[in-house]
């Protein structure tokens, strides 16, 4: 005997599916989205400088997040290896999050204080120069492609609308900071910034 509900009416099929599937939205999504102020109150995060922001977009565009996580889980050995564990407020200005899902290369959450810019440069040009068995691609073009800085203001304005506290003054000066810098240098500035804002919150 066939049941006499969703299998008889396309309308009931659609509505009942939406209702059942929506429970997860109501429980997991909505209550967490309304907590932004609460999260910001606990946050040590500082907005990225224009150059770091430009570098972050290089990071995104090259797909660094495909192989590198930015999420130190709160487990002791993981903290020992990668530094301070992430807290909920750390990434409140991260639109979108760059936690990643695969650690083909090491976690980068706290990479900012570990290597010199020179090392980063050599490593991006050819990772195997400094890590012999590395399987990371080489990114030589990053050091030939130059940023114009033309879109940095609109990026910052969008982020300000989304909640990053950039001042008009910062946005005003942004283009000059970015213009003429290579993608590689911007990326390195971004990498060097990682973990700096939370550095004061340490326990070994």
């Amino acid at each position: 005997m066939l049941s006499k509900d969703f299998t008889q009416s396309v309308f009931i099929l659609i509505i009942s599916t939406i209702v059942v599937a929506s429970f997860s939205i109501l429980v997991l999504i909505v209550p967490n989205l309304v907590r932004t102020d609460e999260i910001i109150a606990t946050s040590l995060a500082k907005p990225l400088t224009p150059l770091e922001l430009a570098g972050r977009d290089v990071y995104i565009s090259e797909g660094c997040h495909v192989c590198h996580t930015q999420m130190v889980r709160g487990i002791e050995p993981e903290v020992k290896r990668n530094g301070r564990a992430n807290k909920e407020g750390d990434d409140i200005y991260e639109f979108p999050n760059l936690w990643g899902s695969k650690r083909t290369g090491p976690d980068l959450t706290n990479i900012g204080r570990k290597y010199s810019e020179q090392w980063q440069r050599i490593h991006l040009m050819n990772p195997r120069k400094v890590v012999p068995t590395s399987i990371m691609p080489a990114y030589p073009w990053l050091f030939t492609q130059v940023l114009s800085g033309d879109d940095i203001e609109s990026k910052m304005r969008v982020l300000r609308k989304l909640g990053v506290p950039y001042t008009e003054n910062e946005i005003d000066k942004a283009r000059l900071q970015v213009k003429g810098v290579t993608k590689g240098e911007a990326l390195i500035q971004y990498l060097q910034s990682l973990g700096n804002d939370t550095a004061s919150d340490q326990e070994h």
């Binding site: 530094g83 706290n110 204080r113 570990k114 290597y115 010199s116 810019e117 020179q118 550095a199 340490q202 070994h204």
Partner: peptide
């Protein structure tokens, strides 16, 4: 040359 060795006092304990 700008040869930089980063400081590790904030990342590693005295004993480490």
């Amino acid at each position: 040359i700008n040869n930089l060795m980063p400081a590790f006092s904030e990342q590693l304990s005295e004993n480490q």
